[in-house]
Design a protein around this nucleic acid. Structure first.
Lengths: 351, 351
DNA sequence: GCCAGATTTGCAAGCGCTTGCAAATTCAAG
DNA sequence: CTTGAATTTGCAAGCGCTTGCAAATCTGGC
């Protein structure tokens, strides 16, 4: 048995019990903050635990029906500033609440996702945060059936009202579009996100609404399909640049695509923002590191992560009022003016 | 007992045993691939498990002395392209080996790191990968004492020969410097990393060696202290730009600082690479997304993550030949030529 | 100083699994 | 057909913890 070597150095609840002179169940209760433990006893136990350097064995605890204080996080991958920022918020809040984090990426085991969710809910996690744009319904159903706490980030749950946190996608796109209109732009190219994703739809709608509200005719040919990734943004921008007359601004549904668009524009020998303005969505860290710095709609990604954690912990620690917790939090976006947008070039004014 | 609700829907090894008509210990053995289970029995068990959708309970398994197939990863944080790339490799390799990942960030519980390591080795992980630049010796000692498998990434372990993976820092810096020299540069500013980190020292040494080997006098005043972060790179570059005569190239010890340097250079109204060349180290994703695209020394970050995982799994799965596994893998760096370096400006040729 | 009731504590069971050991089964050779 | 060795299987213990229940201790009112 190889765990013997571990055991030799491991401090168990029994050691603490011996050291503090009470029974191990009392130690357990004292450590878990039960209120019907005498103050003096609790102090004794805490002191002994501290002295021995006792750390509860998570496996045993959870086996016995306790909590692991581990939260699962399911993401498509980390290679994406957008996800990264959310994860950062998640991580910080988790640390604050003294939980640990299990990271799962969907890149893995593609096609067997159902069993994936099974694995997670059978794993050590007390609950799970899902930042998975294209989520199958069955996932949620499984989670529901297991009464396994979960929170959705930035994704709509068609039927069931799952706890979730997102941002004002419609409003953000509206504001951005209005900003461009105010700068004098009339031919504003729009690069969509993946149509299967609700937020992509919302952003497109916000764009359209702003156009309509300010007397700018909507032109279907100024819409280019994107996929939320940089190469897709590049391709979409190329298409838009062929439009005659050329658009004076391009609004991409996220920063990654905006970055691709910038490249495409530069490759045409055009200047940003002199010849053409570019506007993004998300405000990932790269947005302020490129040149010119990208004007974009800021999603409070980190805060979204934070809120997701608190919604989840609420479910975990108070499973009784689950339904009350099943709420949706929508955070405000904000336009961040940087360098990639300018007033319409004068040569175009007459146009 | 709240786990009752979980239990109601959970498939245990007993269910599989009943279904397949053998005892639960046989099921355990069949599932864990013991070789002294009869083929027919194994098939029966596997079929039953599949049919019932059985997923082993990780907690119970590990409690009983088995492995959890969970690998811990300790990083300073995710907000850093450099770490992100390594993590990506780690994640991929872990998935391939059918392990799961626990993510720990050191941002947390600062000052109590010792107990932090305690927590990790008491946690569910079978082993841990450390990507922590400034690692206290005591960490490793604790790990050693617990016989807890670990691997170091990109960091030297002063005394003990810990299993580790890194890249050819000296050679990479040497090659890059030579490249600049070949382009005609003679006044090459160098932005250091944190001096406490071995790789920073190695890169500086590589720079010096290349200078020496090619008859360029080393000038102490062309060295500026950096810290591996963008603002530090900005500040260091500002300092270098005051040097008279101005350096014709700046070599930053990592990309993040190179990005800062680029900004500083632009803020002085200078052009890259026309007026001054910039060279980085790492090749983080951003390096190819900025304009001009950054010429840099590529570290095979993803591969480093991958190798780290395989070294770790080797320890976990074959604890017997631990010493043999305690080896160091150093991967080759490679210069990636992009747009941020050019031949010395002619105006400077005479200089 | 004693007792009923309230507050604390201890005991023991059991969470789901692995594994040493013994029992059962198989097999080949006699 | 036996028989003994080799191969498979089953039993039971136990990993470290939580928690229901019962026992022990304490409290205050008499």
């Amino acid at each position: 048995m190889d765990s013997s070597r571990k055991k030799s150095t491991r401090v168990t609840i029994l050691d603490v019990a011996r050291e503090s002179g009470v029974s191990y169940s009392t130690v357990s209760r004292a450590l878990n903050g039960f209120d019907f433990v005498k103050g003096a006893t609790r102090d004794k136990v805490l002191a002994a635990a501290e002295k021995l350097g006792y750390v509860a064995n998570v496996q045993a605890r959870s086996l016995a029906g306790g909590k692991t204080r581990i939260i699962g996080l399911l993401v498509p991958g980390l290679d994406n500033g957008y996800i990264g920022e959310i994860v950062r918020g998640v991580d910080e809040e988790i640390a604050k609440a003294n939980y640990d984090l299990m990271l799962y990426t969907t890149r893995r085991r593609v096609g067997r996702e159902a069993m994936y969710i099974d694995a997670i809910s059978n794993g050590p996690s007390d609950g799970i945060i899902l930042i998975v744009p294209l989520l199958e319904r069955e996932y949620l159903t499984a989670l529901r059936e297991h009464h396994f706490p979960y929170v959705l980030v930035d994704q709509i749950d068609p039927q069931m009202h799952s706890p979730m946190v997102d941002a004002t996608n419609w409003q953000g796109a509206y504001d951005a579009t209005k900003y461009l209109i105010d700068l004098g732009h009339r031919r504003i190219g729009f690069i969509t996100g993946l149509r299967a994703i609700q937020s992509a739809l919302d952003r497109l709608d916000g764009y359209k609404a702003a156009l309509a509200d300010h007397g700018v005719r909507f032109d279907e040919t100024l819409i280019a399909e994107g996929d939320f990734f940089t190469p897709g943004g590049y391709a979409a921008a190329q298409k838009l640049l062929k439009h005659k007359p050329r658009p004076t601004a391009v609004f991409a549904s996220n920063d990654l695509m905006a970055l691709g668009a910038m490249q495409a524009i530069r490759d045409q020998g055009l200047e940003i923002p002199e010849d053409i303005s570019v506007l993004g969505f998300d405000d990932i860290p790269q947005a302020s590191m490129v040149h010119p710095q990208l004007t974009t709609v800021r999603q409070p990604l980190e805060q979204m992560g934070r809120v997701a954690v608190s919604l989840l912990i609420e479910q975990i620690e108070r499973p009784d009022n689950l339904e009350r917790a099943a709420r949706r939090v929508t955070l405000a976006t904000r336009l961040i003016e940087r360098e990639s947008c300018a007033a319409v070039p004068t040569s175009d004014m007459k146009g």
